[in-house]
Nucleic acid binder design. Structure first.
Lengths: 193, 193
DNA sequence: GTCTATAATTCGATAGAC
DNA sequence: GTCTATCGAATTATAGAC
């Protein structure tokens, strides 16, 4: 932003800010909001705790800056109808394996109001549009997206947060084979009632 | 236990203990482990905070005493094969609506080690046996139970904890109609791979 | 059996030196 | 821009009077 030229006021702070955010994501993901202390995050980032306050104002501000989630959901419009479910499940597994922001958001969302609101935003702004594309009747999109969220977040909860033994033991291939048709049905099948 | 006869040492404490446990369940369910303070629980129960320590030793001990979960899952052995899924989903909805212990266990399990272990016990001792009854190949029972847990806990997470708008808006009848076949398939369908 | 008083930590946040 | 020192509040847990 400030460019690499000119050293009148060389910002060394950018590296510090990045280190703080990375440490914050790790701690929020591992411990949840209450137990992820600013002191511990600062120690991980090898800086002084007061720097966290200086840069992000408060613990809430730090969380807001550290967890800004972009699911990068695939455009399902170009896919064959019968592959949408598998594509979504597969994409979700990739996300959860590589990005600890998702674990942080889930852990924090369960006990913190701001975290829960953040999850509601992600649902509304990112999953809902996908459902509108894939769903035969757009008016049913919210319900369809809700069903998909329940299935996908339930998998993440049991596999990456609670770590239930048999859920962790499932191979990626199995999960896609089992959950793909479920998500597919929630999105595209006619209303059962 | 001590009987209603004999008042040599009439235990008035039983009422107090019960009040503490009820208040603890409410607070753990609403706030999670860290934010449910002994002080707040004692205030709800209209007793002194030190009484909680006296009766249950520690905050961990209080949680262990307050949340002892019996899902009372139906015996699926006597049911027609094709009704097992709907019966389980329907039973789960009843449980979550009437018993706040489940919400407490889920909220605590996400950020507290003891809570997570408690959930693992419930899975192993209560859901797994049901899967063994319903599953064609008992060797696949853990995987089938894991899939059911992901779907059912995901519904509870989004509906009762995160309170995603469209998930809360779903009518009970719709949930059973959509999730019943899913659980049914996870338990009884042949392995898709 | 119930409560007061307090110990011993730990937390988020602030003020100010350099 | 970074760090030292510290405040004020909150927590779990204990000791002991009544």
């Amino acid at each position: 932003m400030t460019g690499t030229t000119g050293n009148s006021a060389p910002r060394r702070s950018e590296a510090t800010r990045t280190a703080i955010l990375a440490a914050a994501r790790e701690r929020f993901a591992a411990d949840g909001y209450e137990r992820a202390t600013i002191r511990a995050i600062a120690k991980d980032a090898r800086i002084d705790p007061s720097m966290v306050m200086r840069y992000y104002g408060s613990k809430e501000g730090l969380f807001a800056a550290a967890v800004t989630l972009d699911l990068r959901l695939p455009q399902v419009g170009g896919l064959p109808r019968e592959e949408v479910g598998q594509a979504l499940v597969s994409h979700f597994l990739d996300l959860w394996e590589e990005n600890e922001e998702l674990t942080a958001m889930l852990r924090v969302g369960v006990t913190n109001q701001s975290g829960a609101e953040r999850m509601q935003e992600v649902f509304r702004d990112q999953l809902l549009p996908v459902a509108r594309q894939a769903c035969p009747d757009p008016e049913q999109a919210p319900a369809r997206a809700a069903l998909c969220a329940a299935q996908l977040l339930g998998l993440a909860l049991t596999r990456y947060v609670l770590r239930l033994g048999p859920t962790v033991a499932l191979r990626r291939q199995e999960i896609v084979a089992w959950l793909g048709p479920t998500v597919q049905r929630y999105l595209t099948a006619p209303h059962p009632a």
